[in-house]
Computed example of a mutant assay.
Amino acid sequence: MKEFLFVFRADFSKMGERSPEQMQASMKKWMDWISGIAAQNKLVDRGNRLEPAGKVLRPDNIVTDGPFTEIKETLAGYTIVKADTLEEATELAKGCPVLETGGNVEIREIGKM
């Protein structure tokens, strides 16, 4: 089996303020989705949420705020799964809760070095 990286992107400005109950319900959706992948023995690393603040280091040691200040979408987190094909990995991604809030999942095969 191959390993695939799910990269989650979201526009947090569209989400607005959420109550503790809404946040808890959202977290349950994420945990249920991840648990479903784990139950199929296809979860490699559940990954983590990424904080929106960051820096980008460019050639000549140029450092800018980032990572992507010019776009609304924020890199929100990642997960690593295993699947036989890109199509199978894409099917696993289809239940991702980020899709419910207008976000997206980028699916990339991890090449071994």
Score class of each variant (00 low, 15 high):
80 I>L: 07
54 G>Y: 09
25 A>C: 03
72 K>T: 09
50 L>G: 03
30 W>D: 05
27 M>R: 03
54 G>L: 10
10 A>E: 10
18 R>Y: 00
18 R>P: 01
111 G>R: 06
98 V>N: 06
76 A>R: 12
69 T>W: 01
8 F>T: 00
51 E>R: 11
1 M>E: 02
76 A>M: 11
11 D>W: 08
110 I>V: 15
39 A>N: 13
36 G>R: 07
12 F>G: 04
108 R>S: 08
102 G>P: 10
101 T>P: 00
97 P>G: 06
64 T>W: 03
59 P>E: 12
70 E>L: 12
33 W>T: 03
2 K>D: 06
45 D>F: 14
9 R>F: 14
67 P>Q: 06
70 E>V: 02
85 T>R: 10
105 V>A: 01
4 F>L: 09
6 F>D: 02
101 T>D: 11
67 P>V: 13
49 R>K: 14
103 G>Q: 12
93 A>G: 10
52 P>N: 09
101 T>H: 11
17 E>W: 00
28 K>P: 01
66 G>L: 06
66 G>E: 05
46 R>H: 09
69 T>A: 12
16 G>A: 01
90 T>V: 13
59 P>R: 10
82 K>R: 15
30 W>K: 00
74 T>F: 03
82 K>L: 06
106 E>D: 11
100 E>A: 14
88 E>H: 10
17 E>Y: 05
17 E>R: 04
87 E>V: 14
83 A>Q: 02
57 L>M: 11
31 M>N: 08
49 R>P: 02
63 V>K: 09
12 F>W: 14
107 I>F: 08
96 C>E: 06
94 K>G: 11
88 E>Y: 06
26 S>T: 05
9 R>A: 09
84 D>I: 06
54 G>H: 07
15 M>F: 01
53 A>Y: 08
40 Q>M: 14
97 P>D: 06
19 S>C: 02
48 N>S: 14
68 F>G: 10
20 P>H: 04
99 L>W: 12
82 K>C: 10
89 A>P: 10
46 R>I: 05
50 L>E: 02
10 A>T: 11
37 I>G: 00
16 G>K: 00
111 G>S: 10
80 I>K: 05
60 D>P: 00
10 A>D: 09
89 A>G: 09
27 M>I: 09
11 D>Q: 08
92 L>Q: 12
13 S>R: 12
52 P>R: 11
98 V>Q: 06
73 E>S: 11
24 Q>A: 14
95 G>P: 05
32 D>P: 07
65 D>E: 13
89 A>C: 03
113 M>T: 10
18 R>V: 03
31 M>T: 08
17 E>C: 01
51 E>C: 03
41 N>E: 15
43 L>H: 00
95 G>F: 05
38 A>P: 01
18 R>I: 00
107 I>C: 14
83 A>M: 00
58 R>H: 15
112 K>S: 15
60 D>R: 12
42 K>Q: 15
94 K>W: 07
96 C>Y: 02
84 D>E: 15
21 E>G: 04
66 G>P: 07
103 G>E: 04
10 A>N: 13
7 V>G: 04
1 M>I: 08
72 K>Q: 05
6 F>Y: 12
45 D>Y: 13
37 I>K: 07
56 V>K: 14
32 D>H: 06
105 V>C: 10
71 I>N: 08
95 G>V: 07
45 D>M: 12
1 M>S: 10
84 D>C: 05
76 A>L: 12
1 M>T: 04
95 G>D: 11
15 M>R: 04
103 G>P: 08
65 D>K: 14
86 L>T: 14
72 K>H: 07
41 N>P: 04
